[in-house]
Design a protein around this nucleic acid. Sequence first.
DNA 1: GCAGACTTGGAAAACGCTTTCCTGGAGGTC
DNA 2: GACCTCCAGGAAAGCGTTTTCCAAGTCTGC
Lengths: 330, 330
Amino acid sequence: MVTLEDVARHAGVSLATASRVLNGSTRQVGASLRAKVELSASELGYRTNVAAQTLARGASNVIGLVVHDLIDPYFAAIADGAMRVAESQGLMVMMGTTHRDPSREIAYVSTLNAQRVRAVLLVGSRVADPEPTRRLREELDRYRETGGRVACVGQDLLGTDTVVPDNRAGAAALARALAGLGHRKFAVLAGPDWLLAPRDRVAGFVGALEELGLPEPLVLYGSFDREGGYAAATQATGVTCVFAVTDVMAVGALASFRDRGVRVPEDVSVAGFDDIFTLRDLVPALSTVRLPLPQMGARALELALDATGEARAETVAGEVILRESTRALD
Amino acid sequence: MVTLEDVARHAGVSLATASRVLNGSTRQVGASLRAKVELSASELGYRTNVAAQTLARGASNVIGLVVHDLIDPYFAAIADGAMRVAESQGLMVMMGTTHRDPSREIAYVSTLNAQRVRAVLLVGSRVADPEPTRRLREELDRYRETGGRVACVGQDLLGTDTVVPDNRAGAAALARALAGLGHRKFAVLAGPDWLLAPRDRVAGFVGALEELGLPEPLVLYGSFDREGGYAAATQATGVTCVFAVTDVMAVGALASFRDRGVRVPEDVSVAGFDDIFTLRDLVPALSTVRLPLPQMGARALELALDATGEARAETVAGEVILRESTRALD
DNA sequence: GCAGACTTGGAAAACGCTTTCCTGGAGGTC
DNA sequence: GACCTCCAGGAAAGCGTTTTCCAAGTCTGC
């Protein structure tokens, strides 16, 4: 293992000089010494020991990124946006997946704190139970006390900078658009009730229908994935329009209807939420609420990195996009 | 910032004892001291400084994971498999995305080397140009000389443990299956020629047709994404069957045909490669070659972690799956 | 009871950097 | 030419752990 000291000795300079040449300092180093050091470093194949550097500097060049599930394209898209920002700033990304287990989220924050990462990005819905949120917040506070920066994508419940998808308003707008198509009898394929994002979407949708004086929709709970959408959709009878709280669940619903010979949109309209890029080519094309996922991830990291005093919450609106999976009732 | 020394002082023990209690050592510590240390640590909110630990131990608990592109579900699936293994071993994952730029891959290996990560996983196709591969290999060698472990998912070109998707054989098997359906006139939607994975798939497909004595297919090049598939497909005329070298490109092809009123599979059959989970519900369901993506990622990390002397290459076969997007010619 | 073998706790030397001082010389001003 | 300011270079003190020695007790077996 080649150390800075080896390089310094080989170049015939002091450790300090070698450090200043190789690892970016404000201090000037004379051209001839600088050249010698650089040559030695490359001849010996020197690689900075980042752990030592972090220890000495008291700050690392790593950020932490905690998401629920990488396979879910929702998170992949947000993560991608965040990673682009990280790359552009020369930061490495330490990634953790919680598989929707709040305690794993807490554990990751603790670990990332131990790693002394520059910033932590928490991506994904908070849970309804206040207890894990309280403990997470405690852990985050501990991290922030020592200079850590935090930002979230999700509900603004942690006292951090947060990019908040406006789930309620988006779902409400979708409800109005769907009602505008003439639909009156709805089913909502809701995700698990203990997650806030699906909850808010359901609430927004239901609330908007109520405001319009329409009958209450049939709310069917299922897991937060394709299978959940499939299962819930099998019970969605007697309605003209189905709102699945995520595109991924909507895909399950489409599959369910297809398997049962129910035509979309002729027999039933289906809408999702998120506008997942990979699903853009579904047939029928999915009506949905578009969220600018990569931008949200990027923005969250930007917020975390440029530290201001108080926590900011930036709401991002969803845009209703009607495609082929929903049709106007005649 | 609470340090181990603070904890030791607070507990009235030596640094050594505190270290042994809190950060897993083989040495025994008496129950009463152990309890005191643990209490102090939790009271003070102590968090190990991993940088210091890494420096002192000379080994980190981090692995590096370098993929081409997170939004591409192919890589997300492999990454997910690898991350599950990492999590089960208590390892953190440092992730980098190259966006298919070989020089970024090299840069990441260098950075990960500097981070002294335990192992590096390189996921994604090698390139045809031997030069970047040579330089990457050089960088990897430097890393391995100092005890780093490396594994790849892709072509076995780096002298590392490698999980090799059998692109040729898979594509050949697909060609035979398609020929078995009666197809004679094929188009291949090839990815960029400078990437080895699409190249191998094309070669396998073309080779199999040749062996069967069938006419050469029309080979159309396009970018390695949905748009590439779309563009290439517009030129795929006069054929009964189209093979896109990835599912993602196949999706583009399906969209292209749909936009032009060409029915799949009635007018033309379409097959892909990879069997991307998120695309399982496409209509028509995509015929493809299934690769056990998460398992491949998991296996690669396992290989990297249990270090044997020589490099092992494990080939994983693809399984031809015919669904609705291909039909038998009458 | 006592030599020897274990065991437990602590002091202190790394680990590989960064950065604060300090020093000596070069350049500028009167 | 004396004085001052600047600046490049080096010595050395950390940064927060781990781990190697030692020393002092505690057992064990006879």
